[in-house]
Design a protein around this nucleic acid. Structure first.
Length: 339
DNA sequence: AAGAGATGCAACCGCGACCAA
DNA sequence: CTTGGTCGCGGTTGCATCTCT
């Protein structure tokens, strides 16, 4: 037995609001406030609308000082940064953008900003698809782009986390350009950082049952222990997704495999990994080092000491003053992955 | 010019959180 | 502690408009 409806659905008007309804609601709230009870409000003013509908209309459209459309570059950057950090927590993101509503930002992200930022990858995938029509399907993110309003792909990974990973990679690529760096990674106001940290810790706390490490507070990040993997929400989520996605994932603390990659521009030695994660098609591979920020992007295959081929499709890293991160997505010839 | 498909946006839905009784 | 009502959020849907062929 489901919960009781909040209103009599049969006698409630749905659909677009008329100017008359808008005026009625606006006038009432400006004079009397909401009274702390949205459900009762429509009856008070004689409207055949659900209280939730009134609330939504007020918050998203009628409220004073709301801006519609015309997102600035700075707003784009803030949305993007926060989305990568905390995911689709539109209310938190909206709180950082005065005059914007969560619904507005959500729509803007889904319809424009995401495409704007991931456009290049889409082109790459289209090219890849043309070159190998029998190849693997597009990621769920791009699949969704091409199939508006259709169900997610059967890939099984969270679109949100994939997007965040892709964006992180993309922005780190752009990060090589110092001009773009400041443009795309704006320094947050301390209050924004505090909010962000709070949100991150909330997320980590919620995941405690999964035994994921907590995000360290700034004061805890003074000198991270060597080879300690500090989980940020993005990484947590990706790890959990990989584990959920992979029916045959494997974790190990006894890997003795050393991977050496050689590219035309980079030579990367990955320490014997303390943690393996694999299975399925794609993998996340990470390595914490203390050598500062570095960025590499591979598209070539590389071979491990035991002869397993990995197609390292991309890699990125990020860093703060105290710690740095390096990740790459890998696909192996034998179905094993490394973290 | 017309039809089909893509896009953008407002609004709805359902669920979990919260709180008071 | 339980229950019922409300709030707030994120995901989804419906539809008008735009773009392409």
């Amino acid at each position: 037995m489901g919960r009781a409806p909040c209103c009599d659905k049969a006698n409630v008007k749905k659909g677009p609001w008329s100017a008359e309804e808008d005026a009625k609601l606006k006038d009432y709230i400006e004079q009397h406030g909401t009274g702390g009870n949205w459900i009762a409000l429509p009856q008070k003013i004689g409207m055949k609308r659900c209280g939730k509908s009134c609330r939504l209309r007020w918050l998203n459209y009628l409220r004073p000082n709301l801006k519609h459309g015309g997102f600035s570059e700075e707003e784009d950057n803030i949305i993007c940064s926060l989305y990568i950090s905390i995911g689709s927590r539109w209310s938190i993101i909206a709180a950082q953008l005065p005059g914007r509503t969560d619904n507005d930002i959500k729509n803007y992200w889904n319809t424009r900003l995401k495409k704007k930022l991931l456009g290049r990858r889409k082109q790459q995938q289209q090219l890849h698809h043309q070159q190998s029509p029998e190849g693997s399907p597009a990621t769920s993110v791009e699949h969704d782009h091409q199939n508006h309003h259709q169900s997610p792909s059967s890939h099984g990974l969270s679109n949100s986390a994939l997007e965040r990973l892709q964006l992180h990679m993309k922005l780190q690529t752009l990060n090589q350009n110092p001009l773009l760096h400041t443009m795309l990674w704006p320094k947050l106001h301390p209050f924004q950082e505090k909010l962000l940290l709070q949100a991150m810790n909330d997320e980590n706390n919620n995941n405690q049952s999964m035994q994921l490490p907590l995000l360290p507070q700034p004061e805890m990040m003074e000198s991270p222990p060597s080879n300690t993997i500090i989980a940020k929400p993005l990484e947590d989520e990706m790890m959990m997704m990989m584990m959920n996605h992979s029916s045959n994932y494997n974790t190990s603390t006894t890997s003795n495999e050393t991977i050496t990659t050689t590219t035309t521009t980079n030579e990367i030695n990955v320490d014997p990994s303390p943690f393996q994660l694999g299975g399925g098609d794609d993998f996340i591979m990470g390595n914490l080092d203390n050598s500062g920020s570095s960025l590499v992007w591979w598209s070539n295959e590389f071979e491990t000491s035991n002869g397993v081929n990995y197609d390292r499709s991309g890699s990125f890293s990020s860093s703060s003053n105290d710690s740095s991160w390096e990740y790459c997505a890998v696909r192996s010839s034998d179905g094993a992955g490394l973290f």
